[in-house]
Design a protein around this nucleic acid. Structure first.
Lengths: 341, 341
DNA sequence: GTGAAAGCGCTAACAT
DNA sequence: ATGTTAGCGCTTTCAC
């Protein structure tokens, strides 16, 4: 076997193999312009037998167009983001655009880096989680001149436009429902992530609203690392030990809430009679637990869809009108752990 | 405000702003070659104040190098894959390489499309889930001339090389452990996914090994869609109704296994005394359930790491020696649902 | 319906 | 240490 030095095939190779000019080959491969049926077939045939794969790098440089949409999210391990991704993919499937994911691990420095990296590929648009970004990132986004949609959160000022829910409001509404249901001794558990602005805003909205009813959180605890389910169990056990008079536990996510629920059931504590529970996200994952945890849907797929729609519309027509902020309205799902009044 | 027509900045702009040749600007921005401290600072200053972001498309075309590694997986919604991704990211973090994800939804046609799409960006390597690909995909991978690592599975013949576990063996080993523990009336539950070759291979290995002990599966059921936990519950209930003499249930993944476990506990059935259970994957997610489900770790992070290492090594030195197949050895985790003999 | 020429924004290779 | 030249593989534009 000859030492096949792997020079990738070029348009020229297809051109020579088919006896058609590079230009016409290019037209056939992109379905652009009029090409006779005869030449079209010759070209396709040649391209296929050679195994030609077009070079998008050269194409993008020449055409100044890149069909990529940069999607920048904090993590893939929190089910929320894959679900947003699905919404985005579904919507972009109908277009020429393709999502490309970058992960920041909730680190602003990494966000800067990932964003810079992605922008250097000159994508057609950016979808980025959250409204809190470094000055450097905001500057890059503004200077990029491409459509930018900030997702998940609407409490703040987008660079370009935003699609999400108000986490502050979500926290307030949950507080209202809990107070209305007659609970007064309330504990909070969440993740120890100062960078998780959305969890923070929910917490703030929650405590503010409680304050309006003259209620203050009786106990709180934050965790990091490990299995959320197990942590929910442990934290709940510890908190009830410490503060036995609690009658409601609000969790910053459904997984730790589920852990808490399992602990209470193990202990034979009446839910929601003796102690009520609520989480956040509405993860389908948990359907199938002995009780359905009260929660609030974060509208993940819908957010992805809407964001993708905006990008697609702006790519199709840069002058397309865009609402600066699209705020979706999640509803409380009472499930079986928050009594209704 | 003048109608800022957004021509993105080029090297030339930085060159003019700093009074340094384009070539030297390029050198500074890439930390290549000797540049005096003075010019370096001038250039960095100019680039920063202008907000210049290099154009990787042009860079890649000129240098014929693209620091991207294509990672092609069936789904992001199955936690297995984000975990593999983490392993890959961790490992690539130390290099210049960057992972780019493509999702196939377990559809061969989509795999062809995604692969073609990614290869057209001329990545430095490909990491792709599974060993089963269309002829078209195998041909593309071979012709690409770049390192290709097929992951997750080692039962078959890789195009280039593979890192994973033998799912057939995993199925056999679980069968052996179950038989050894004295269970004989065995049921199986899994996903209705003819495309999930790894689940299929586990099932095949499982039944083959049982056959050697003269045991045949007594009942089986496959589901699709919906929450795995809930489905596990339902299927388990239905199966025990139908075939009450079952004393062991083997699930193709931990989520449905967990659903089954919750059902049995609700019903007050002794686990693993009356009925034993086992799943597959070793998802940390589930730590915190009332019992730890017997399972087998799929070595997800490790697989990602190893695959990334291979790509990185081959990019650094194309002649680097590579083992054609790296087979990791998952161990049975007995947990609390499979008695030990 | 098809082709030829110019150039997209960078970097390799070679000056100086 | 810095600059010059010639492309990378395509697409745009214009000519036929």
């Amino acid at each position: 076997m000859p030492p096949t030095d792997h020079r990738p095939l070029t348009l020229r190779d297809v051109s020579e193999a088919s006896g058609v000019s590079e230009m016409t080959v290019s037209r056939v491969l992109r379905n652009r312009g009029d090409v006779s049926q005869a030449t079209r077939e010759k070209v396709l045939e040649a391209a296929k037998t050679l195994g030609y794969v077009p070079n998008k790098i050269a194409g993008a440089l020449a055409s100044q167009r890149v069909n990529l949409v940069a999607v920048i999210i904090p993590s893939l391990r929190n089910m929320v983001f894959p679900e947003v991704m699905s919404g985005i993919s579904q919507e972009l499937e109908e277009t020429e655009l393709q999502p490309v994911v970058g992960v920041t691990d909730y680190l602003p420095e990494k966000e800067d880096k990932v964003l810079y990296e992605m922008l250097s590929w000159r994508p057609s648009g950016v979808i980025i989680a959250g409204l809190e970004h470094s000055d450097a990132s905001r500057a890059m986004l503004k200077a990029s001149g491409i459509p930018v949609v900030e997702i998940m959160d609407t409490d703040g000022h987008p660079v370009d436009c935003a699609v999400g829910i108000s986490h502050r409001r979500a926290g307030r509404e949950m507080a209202r429902a809990i107070v209305k249901a007659g609970y007064t001794n309330i504990g909070f558990m969440g993740t120890k992530m100062p960078r998780d602005h959305r969890a923070r805003k929910r917490f703030e909205g929650f405590t503010e609203q409680l304050a309006k009813s003259g209620i203050e959180i009786m106990d709180r605890e934050f965790y990091s690392g490990g299995s959320a389910l197990a942590k929910g169990r442990e934290m709940t056990a510890a908190m009830l030990e410490r503060t036995p008079e609690l009658d409601f536990l609000y969790y910053s996510n459904d997984m730790i809430g589920a852990g808490g629920l399992l602990h209470l059931l193990d202990r034979g504590i009446a839910v929601p009679g003796q102690i009520g529970l609520a989480g956040f996200n509405g993860v389908e994952l948990l359907d199938g637990l002995p009780r359905r945890l009260a929660t609030m849907d974060a509208c993940r797929t819908e957010i992805g869809r809407r964001a993708a729609q905006i990008i697609a519309a702006r790519v199709a027509d840069p002058a397309a009108p865009v609402a600066p902020v699209v705020e979706l309205s999640p509803r409380i799902e009472y499930g079986d752990t928050l009594r209704r009044r």
